[in-house]
Nucleic acid binder design. Structure first.
Lengths: 150, 150
DNA sequence: TACAAATAATTAGTGTGACAAATATATGAA
DNA sequence: TTCATATATTTGTCACACTAATTATTTGTA
């Protein structure tokens, strides 16, 4: 195995990650989902974790604070979530979905699971486990923190 | 395997791809490479393929035309490459590295190979092959074209 | 030849990603 | 209590991604 061969994984990784996002976004668009792929990730995590602060949410979705601030701005503007002042700490907010946001998550979840499954055609459950293991190893090699398990 | 489990690969894939890019960009920065990770991808491909058009280059690096136009603008401004009018087709350019660009590629290539290798600690050559196979399968499942072989 | 359709590249607009700096508030030690 | 330090969030800037629309040129066909 030459060095040149090793260097290719980064290109393939980036290309595939962008293809996956691109494919999902196109499906989102043709289905009139009214949210982007990244906005969905935020909504989904909020539906599973109540009253998070932005810092907590940022760690969950692996986005930096400025990026998350802007995504939240957009989702608030669309009426899917709200920032509630934290009574115990005036620096921070408690994030929560509005009724409209809860409905959106309920409506989209099954459709999105179906979209996500498309990538996995022609692959096995063993592949899935291997893939996760390798991705997480790379993530840790480069300084990533704690892999969430479930 | 539940649907919910399957949907997680997209998050891990995106997270790892961004970590890899982020790590490389930090190393590029601390080494004063004077190019971004994506700009390097363009320089490297130009050094291996002469007189490409922007459309040809876009396919090689899997970037869309607007993005590539801007990356090329930046690289021309830095003096690493030039657009030469194509004598056979006045709509298009023939791209080529300047002497300064050739030198940049020669100087950076070994350092970048070393940076890229870091991600691969604790993984085997078999893992590498499996990883490439799975990435390419996903890419093809979502409509990706022809996997380049070498 | 003439003209519609295709192609190469650019521009514009919005969203996301990374990093630095700024603002507001909280906390801990003197 | 007071002040330095830490934390939560926002703002600013640049780069990249995707879409749609635009400009210039070429090609295919009548």
């Amino acid at each position: 195995m030459t060095h040149e061969q090793f260097a290719k994984y980064s290109f393939l990784l980036d290309r595939t990650a962008r293809k996956v996002k691109q494919y999902a976004q196109q499906q989102f668009k043709s289905g009139d989902f009214d949210v982007t792929v990244d906005q969905w990730l935020v909504l989904k995590n909020l539906s599973e974790n109540h009253l998070l602060s932005q810092t907590q949410l940022a760690q969950l979705v692996f986005k930096d604070h400025p990026t998350l601030t802007r995504i939240i701005d957009l989702l608030c503007k669309k009426g899917y979530m709200e920032r509630i002042p934290n009574p115990n700490d005036r620096r921070s907010f408690q994030l929560h979905l509005t009724t409209s946001g809860e409905e959106k998550v309920r409506a989209l979840r099954p459709q999105i699971l179906e979209i996500r499954e498309k990538a996995w055609e022609n692959l096995s459950e063993t592949d899935f486990e291997e893939f996760k293991r390798i991705l997480n190893t790379i993530y840790m090699n480069l300084g990533g923190q704690e892999i969430e398990e479930e």
